[in-house]
Each structure stands twice: as C-alpha cells, then as structure tokens.
Design a protein around this nucleic acid. Structure first.
Lengths: 331, 331
DNA sequence: TTATATTTTGTAATCGATTACAAATATTAC
DNA sequence: GTAATATTTGTAATCGATTACAAAATATAA
C-alpha cells in the first residue's frame, strides 16, 4: 500500500507538497501539482483515513440515531440522509435505539468516541425533555421529534396542525365520536394528541384517547381489548403507521367493517394504505424531504457553528380515501 | 478531554500500563489494574479511536453494501446486521448502490479507504459474474445473491427450490398457464427464473417469462403493457416484493380481478400481502435470519481468516393465501 | 545465597497523515 | 540593482494511542 512519502519520492517533492495538492490547497505551483497528481495516480495512492483523522481531528462522519430503521418513516429518512451525506463526502453510522434511553445514551457516547462531525437524532421522550444541543461536543439536528421550546436545530412535521386537520376531516365527514390511539412514548404522538384535542374542543366534542406503545403488535392487542367493551366509536385515528396497521388488524379480528361500522384514519402514507379495501385516509408525511432537510441543516450548522438555532417545519398532506367516507349524522 | 497520559499520571503508572489494563491484556498486577480503572473512571477517559486505529491498524467497522435500504428485504437485513455488529462492538457503515456498478465500485473503494474489518455485500449482477473474495483486502460475505460457483462466503435463500415450489403450487392449484415477472438485473431473479423453468418443464408446460427492472414503477408499467395484449394467463409470479406490488397495481388499473380472473403470487411476505383482499400467496424469506447469519459468518471469517469458504442456504416458506385459490381445470 | 527464569513495568518507537514554521525562491517597489 | 514583500517549498513537530523492547521486580531452582 503506497503512502504519502512514496508519492512524494516518486514525484520528487516533499510530503507537505503532496498533502497540499491532494487537499486542494492553494499556493502550489502547477508543475508540482501535475507531478504529484501523476505520481498519486501511478501508485494508486489512497490516503490513510485513520492517520488523517488523528492529525486533522475531523472524521467527516455523521451519526444517525433513530428508534428503528425498520419503521418505514425512518427507513426513508435514512436513505435521504445517506444520499446527501455521501454527495458531500461524509460517511453515515446508523444506530437503532428501540426507544430505549439506555441504548440512546450508549450511542450518543459512541458518537463522542467516534468524534463524529455531527449527529441526526430522533430522541426518546426522556431525552427530549430538557435537550440542549449545546450539551454535546458535536452539532445535533433533531428529526421528527422536538418540543416547542427545545434549544436545538430540528426538522419536524407540523404535528399539531396535521392531527387537527385529520380530526376535523373526520368530524366534518360525520364522525364526531372518534378515538385517538397514540404513541405516548414519543413527542410526536403527544403533539398529534394535542392537535386532536384542539380539534375536538373546537367542535365542542368529547375527546377520547388511548395511549399505546407504538408497535404493530401492541397496538393490535390494545385495540382488541378496546373493542371488547362496547359501545364502539364511529372512527379511529392512529398517531403513526405502525399503530394504524395494528388497528386494522384488530378490526379484522373482531370483524368490524371499515368504513360501514367504523372509520379508520391515521398518519403515514404507507404502500398498503392505498392497497387495502377500502383505502385508508391518512396524513402523508414528506419523509424523504424531512431527512434531506435534516442533513442539509446539519451540514449548514457544521459550516456555520454559530448560526442561530433553526427549526424547519413541514406540512403534512391529507390523503382522503374511502375509509373515512362521508356519512350522515346518526340517531 | 482526558487522554491516556493524564490517566497514567493520575494513576501514577506508565501509559503502557494504562493501555494494557484498558485493552484487557494479561500480565498486569491487580493493584495497578485497580488504580488505572479508578483513574480512567475519575477522568471519564475515552480512548481516541482515530489514534487507536492508526496504530493498531484495526477499525472494528464493517461495511454493509446493499442496493437500497428502502427495499424491505434489505431494511430487515440492515437491522439484523446492526444488532449483531453492535453486540460485538463493531460499527456499521451503510451504503446504497441502486444496482449501479459504478456506485458499487465507489463504495468498495471507500471500504478499502476506511480499512474496514469486513464487508457484507449484495452484489450487482455485473460484479457477481467473476467475484472472488480473495480479490479484496478485507473479508467479504455475500448476502442474498450468489452463483453456484462463486468463491466467497455467502448467505442466500434457496431460490431455485423456492421458485420451484411456488410454481408447482400454482400448477397443482389449477393454474398451468402462468407467467413469471422477474428482476433480470439480479442473480436472485435469475435463480428464481431457473426454479420456475424447472417446475414448468417438470410438468411439461410452456414457460413464459417477462424480464423487468425490480422497481414498483417499472413492474407496474411493464405489466400494464403486458395486459394490453390478450390472451391473459391464469396466474402471475413476481420474483420479489417490489415487482409483486407493481403487478398488483397494474391488475387494479386494468381491472382484472384476483383470484377470479387471475392468480397472483410472489416472493417476500410483506405486511400488505396479507392485508389486501384476497391475501397474496407468497414465499416468505427469513430476512432477519439471513442478515444475522451473514454478520455471524463475517465475524467467524474475521476470527478465522483461513477457514474454508462457507455457504449458508436458508429455505423459504410457502404461505398459501387466497390469491392462488384452487381452481378446476378450465375448458 | 546466588543464578536463572519469569513476570511486571516503563521508555520510546511507531502508525501515516496534516500543518506550523522556517527556508528558499520569485515578485514588486524604489 | 537592492531591499522589501509575497509566494512556494521543505523540515520537522504533531495528533494520541499501541506495542516492541529493555529494564526492573519477583519467583523459582540450585
């Protein structure tokens, strides 16, 4: 494996010149430039990244910490982050916390050890509580989850607004008695709950919420239990795609028909929501855009460490399908 | 940030002793051991990974190169790889090739630059052609794709067998005139084609195959065109989950009813395949297991660089659903 | 007790780049 | 043509660990 001194020797210059040429620094003559480039090419020289990182104290690596990359929302985020990262010559280290604050802390420590250039984080509720990016030795951009007063860069959906619109849609379509199943362990779930409450209040309706763990299995069993004690509501709202799937499975188990007996809606426009019969009305999140905005914000922050804290808020899109079809007021 | 000499000073020992204690090497007295541990704790010492990697020439990093992490098959693989990797104190660098040999080559070069300890790779057809792990400066384990004579560790599904069984299932359920839509750009697709051909031949039937690019959109438009020129076959087989989804969408567009007018089957037991009406008959792949087996094989290879090349072959499971319901022979 | 083998500990070289600083060279001003 | 300045180049220090080797301490054998 050729190293810098071999290139220097081959080109008949000093190692400093080689380094300068390869780093693209100014102030090096064209003749040396050419000789170095030729030599590097000839020897198939590749700089040793460990050595470079030790001396330069930069790793050009960014950490991506999410709850589970298998959640389609985060799958898409990951892809967006990697696309933009690699375009900018950064590596990505991917970590799954499973909403476990200990794993989260472990990975944040790991990020420090790796001396990453920055981190994109979807924090647990516990960590978000008094999160300040200033507490970390690297820039952090929050993604998907963020409180109103969090002192950190963030890219999020306007959850309150989206839940408000989804709930209003149900009410206006003749489903005033509806129930929200929300993931209580994430800030996102709580904000969607907030929007739901606001919409219900605005229409003078009694809200009803069920806190669940945001997994398909838990949502299904919780909903199953829920349906064992009538009366049944007129509509359901799921605060994310996993819960939505769990609800649908539970409805099938107890043979409650959508939309005849109950309307079903939720967040995340996953492929299956438009394939099932009836199609499910959802709030579509611009997931790739969210990931892209997050990494771009992080790169900006890296370039401008002192710039003011920024928040990017994206709007969800209501996709009306048959699962929330209009219905005449009952009774 | 405390460094090793600070710990050494605090503990009143040499840096060598600190390094030895922290690396867990034998031949260090219990008294020094304790003092070092206490000092490291007190100073919250974390070794600098760049320095360690430069000197030790080990990175404890593994590369995962797949076509697209958004393909649910690879999503699950990624998660399995990361789980096992982190349990063994390895980092994971994730790369998406989009089936593009140039991106693939770029990332393999990157892996060399990063001096990774090993790589898990789902190769493009082009790369697989004469792939030999001996050509790379790091151990490589292939995943999902591998030819019969490839000289490399690999973890794959028994594709020929699975396609054979799926095809036979269709034939035995009264669907002799069936068509395979397969991803021609991957070894997996080609092997599934092979199993399909074998099953058709075994029953003296005329095979019919359509090569497509393995994306939802392309499969949909290819199928759409296909259905514009009758006669229509009795059944369809998709060589993976993306193509399967594309076929279903096309069938809906041209309003061909499943299973009344046509049977639909394929690979990959994705959530939606059992949610749609009718449920889709599929070959379920043990995806998490495949990923887990791959990383475990890689770790073995790292520990035993000279061991014989191994291949792990897993069996797919046929999940019969209503989309391939039994039908009396026509005519 | 002394000589030898063994274990423990410390000193200093090393990994392979980047970069501060000094030296050499070229340019400009007078 | 000389002095002052700007530019280019090279030498050597540096990043922070690991580890080869030497030295010191301890254990074992005679």
């Amino acid at each position: 494996m050729a190293q810098i001194k071999d290139v220097a020797h081959q080109a008949g210059v000093s190692v400093a010149s080689v380094s300068r040429v390869l780093a693209g620094h100014a102030g090096v003559s064209e003749s040396i430039r050419q000789r170095v480039l030729a030599a590097a090419q000839a020897l198939d020289y590749r700089p040793d990244l460990a050595a470079r990182r030790l001396r330069s104290r930069r790793t050009d690596t960014i950490g991506l910490i999410v709850s589970d990359v298998r959640n389609p929302f985060f799958t898409e985020i990951s892809r967006a982050v990697e696309d933009v990262a690699y375009q900018n010559h950064f590596r990505v280290i991917l970590c799954n916390t499973d909403e476990n604050p200990e794993k989260e802390a472990f990975y944040l420590d790991l990020m420090r050890d790796e001396n990453v250039t920055g981190v994109i984080l979807s924090p647990t509720l516990a960590l978000l509580a008094d999160f300040r990016s200033a507490d970390y030795p690297f820039p952090v951009v929050l993604v998907d989850r963020c409180d109103r007063d969090t002192a950190a860069d963030a890219v999020v959906l306007d959850n309150v607004d989206a839940a408000y619109r989804l709930t209003t849609h149900l009410i206006e379509n003749g489903h005033p008695r509806n129930v929200l199943f929300y993931g209580a362990a994430s800030a996102t779930g709580c904000q969607r709950r907030e929007g739901y409450m606001a919409a219900m209040a605005a229409h003078g309706l009694e809200p009803q919420v069920e806190a669940v763990t945001a997994t398909v299995d838990h949502a299904r069993s919780a909903a199953h239990k829920f349906f064992c004690r009538p009366p049944h509501p007129e509509a359901l709202i799921a605060s994310n795609g996993l819960i939505l799937l769990g609800l649908l499975e539970a409805l099938r188990e107890v043979k409650i028909k959508v939309p005849e007996q109950i309307a079903l809606t939720g967040f995340d426009d996953l492929p299956w929501t438009r394939l099932v019969e009836p199609g499910i009305t959802v709030i579509a999140q611009p997931t790739y855009d969210i990931g892209q905005a997050a990494i771009e914000l992080l790169l900006q922050r890296i370039a401008q460490p002192a710039q003011a804290v920024r928040r990017v808020v994206l709007r969800g899109e209501l996709r009306e399908r048959d699962s929330s079809k209009k219905r005449n007021a009952r009774r």
